[in-house]
């Protein structure tokens, strides 16, 4: 991507296929391609090729054991008419919007609060990493035990305080609230950590200067902190949004297979039920395309810069 570095070869560069010669005639550059090739090859083979295969599957009446014939968009119309898909989509959207919003605002609050020198910094950092290191599935198992109606501490406290009147695990609404809370518990610290790292590279002098100019707390936050933090915020929110959008483990295990998300709908269709293979594949393509659009939105519309084009 960089220009003007290799002066010698740049002077001899010709139009058209000149770059090809330049790239592969130069031993150092050729080595570079050899070095990135193995990784690219497995990524293309194991991720990008299957998605093309998946698109093909979704347009046919295939089953798990055999490739079928072309049927157009029938699987997609079946999928959109399936109430289970509707429920999965609804749950996924609610889950993504609510959990990412909570994680962002709480995470930002925590990052702002701990962005200073204080005793016990190490302890806080350690505590932050504990939920993050948990396997999601195990976190789900643990929280399921805590939501449990006989031995669950959360159920007991909620009962005692009179907040809820029914068992958490048998109500879909409460389960959805439950998975959101578990996700917030597990990922907010990580968001805080990313934002804190972003805060720490803002030079202190900028704030000094603003203070000298008489800027108050609000002005400093909205005029300095937020704009300078934009990069870190977009990275954190995009990562979290796409992660939440493809949620599978948490719903499958905490909801004991009864709480639907888009991903559990796909899994159910292609791995459990024999009859739903077609709509399951359609939903798989649906997730892929929508996730791609979300990423595109962040990068193009919100102007997120990936560190691809750094230095």
């Amino acid at each position: 991507m960089k220009k003007g570095v290799s002066v010698a070869s740049a002077s001899t560069e010709k139009k058209g296929r000149g770059w090809f010669k330049e790239e592969f005639g130069n031993p150092e550059r050729r080595t570079a391609y050899y070095m990135v090739l193995p990784s690219l090859l497995i990524i293309v083979l194991v991720a990008f090729f299957p998605i093309l295969y998946g698109i093909a599957l979704s347009l046919t009446d295939s089953t798990i054991s055999g490739f079928g014939s072309f049927i157009g968009f029938e699987n997609y119309t079946d999928m959109f008419q399936d109430s289970d898909f509707g429920e999965g989509l609804y749950n996924t959207v609610i889950f993504t919007v609510v959990s990412v919003a909570l994680e962002f605002f709480i995470g930002l609050g925590i990052a702002l609060a701990i962005n200073r020198a204080f005793r016990g910094r190490g302890l806080v950092r350690a505590a932050v990493l504990v939920p993050w290191a948990f396997p999601t599935v195990i976190a789900a198992v643990m929280w399921r035990l805590m939501f449990q109606s006989q031995v669950g501490i959360v159920q007991y406290v909620a009962d005692t305080l009179g907040i809820i009147s029914e068992p958490i695990l048998s109500s879909r609404t409460l389960l959805l609230i439950g998975v959101i809370l578990v996700d917030v518990w597990k990922t907010t610290p990580f968001v805080a950590l990313l934002l804190l790292a972003g805060l720490q590279v803002i030079p202190g002098e900028v704030y000094e200067a603003a203070r000298v100019d008489g800027a108050n707390w609000m002005q400093r936050f909205f005029r300095i902190t937020l704009p300078l933090l934009k990069g870190a915020i977009l990275v954190a929110v995009l990562f979290r949004t796409l992660d939440a959008y493809r949620v599978y483990d948490l719903f499958w295990v905490l909801g004991n297979r009864e709480l639907a998300s888009l991903s559990t709908y796909v899994y159910e269709g292609v791995r459990i039920s024999q009859l739903q293979f077609g709509p399951g594949n359609a939903a798989a393509v649906f997730i892929f395309v929508t996730a791609f659009l979300i990423a595109l939105f962040f990068i193009r519309v919100l102007g997120m810069r990936t560190s691809v084009e750094e230095e």
Binding site: A47, Y53, L57, L242, R246, V266, F277, N281, F288
Partner: peptide, 20 residues
Amino acid sequence: TLILAISFFPAVAIIAPLFI
């Protein structure tokens, strides 16, 4: 970009083709 794309990739989208 290709490598980064994988971290945004919904893995569930390819379980059926990979299984086959």
